[in-house]
Amino acid sequence: MTEYKLVVVGAGGVGKSALTIQLIQNHFVDEYDPTIEDSYRKQVVIDGETCLLDILDTAGQEEYSAMRDQYMRTGEGFLCVFAINNTKSFEDIHHYREQIKRVKDSEDVPMVLVGNKCDLPSRTVDTKQAQDLARSYGIPFIETSAKTRQGVDDAFYTLVREIRKHKEKMSKDGKKKKKKSKTKCVIM
């Protein structure tokens, strides 16, 4: 069974824990209790493949930012979460993405942009803004509501699919490099 290491990042209060708990335990946590770091595991079937999701729910508070490099190193894919009623959390996505790329030393890291709290009427981040940002990053965008469960499975499952595509691409690139290195030079 394939294991996928997913990391949920975003500013404090955007609903990272609520999304994760909704996926794992099928219930909505409405009281806000700032996370330092929590880890969850769940076995699911995605596109006919049974897999184990190892999900790291991270601290959004700035005082825990020193811990970010460590979990970013171990993560295979990242859910970059903002709240649709919090423009600052949307603007912060850029910083999370840049930090992930720096730590992973790669421009090509599996990510999904997630606009959470889409059940709320007080939207300050337009869907088109988020779609445009995701398009500019070359990553999928999904709106979710941890409260109603809308888009929750889709967000995590899409990230797994992005990781699969990335692994497939990397193995193809690896095979191309191996083929090239088999060419021999004969000096007579």
Rank of each mutant, 00 (worst) to 15 (best):
T2F: 10
T2R: 12
T2L: 07
T2A: 12
T2Q: 15
E3G: 11
E3I: 05
Y4Q: 08
Y4P: 14
Y4K: 08
K5V: 03
K5D: 13
K5Q: 10
L6E: 00
L6C: 06
L6H: 02
V7S: 09
V7I: 07
V8I: 12
V9G: 05
V9Y: 09
G10W: 00
G10S: 04
A11G: 09
A11L: 14
A11S: 11
G12E: 09
G12V: 06
G12F: 08
G13R: 09
G13V: 13
G13Q: 13
V14A: 13
V14Q: 14
G15V: 01
K16M: 04
K16F: 00
S17P: 00
S17A: 00
A18G: 10
A18Y: 00
A18P: 00
A18W: 01
T20R: 03
T20Q: 14
T20V: 09
I21E: 13
I21K: 15
I21H: 15
Q22H: 13
Q22N: 13
Q22D: 14
Q22F: 04
L23Q: 15
L23D: 07
L23E: 15
I24V: 14
I24Y: 09
I24T: 14
I24P: 00
Q25M: 12
N26L: 12
H27M: 12
H27E: 12
H27A: 12
F28M: 05
F28R: 02
V29Y: 08
V29C: 13
V29A: 11
D30H: 11
D30T: 11
D30Q: 08
D30A: 10
D30K: 09
E31I: 07
E31D: 13
E31H: 05
Y32V: 01
Y32K: 03
Y32T: 05
Y32S: 03
Y32D: 00
D33P: 04
D33A: 11
D33Y: 15
D33M: 15
P34A: 07
P34C: 06
I36A: 00
I36K: 00
I36Q: 00
E37H: 03
E37N: 00
E37W: 01
D38W: 14
D38A: 03
S39E: 08
S39M: 11
S39I: 11
S39W: 05
S39F: 08
S39D: 07
S39H: 03
Y40Q: 06
R41S: 07
R41K: 10
R41G: 08
K42R: 13
K42H: 08
Q43F: 04
Q43H: 07
V44A: 12
V45R: 13
V45A: 10
D47C: 04
D47R: 06
D47S: 07
D47K: 06
G48S: 11
G48V: 07
G48K: 12
G48H: 12
E49L: 04
E49C: 08
E49Y: 07
E49G: 11
E49T: 11
E49P: 07
T50K: 05
T50L: 05
T50N: 06
C51W: 13
C51D: 10
C51N: 09
L52G: 10
L52T: 12
L52Q: 10
L52E: 06
L53G: 04
D54P: 02
D54C: 02
D54T: 04
D54I: 03
I55F: 06
I55L: 07
I55P: 02
L56E: 03
L56F: 11
D57M: 01
D57R: 00
D57I: 01
D57H: 02
D57T: 03
D57W: 01
T58M: 10
T58V: 14
A59S: 14
A59R: 01
Q61H: 13
Q61K: 04
E62L: 15
E62P: 12
E62Y: 07
E62N: 14
E63K: 03
Y64E: 15
Y64S: 15
Y64L: 15
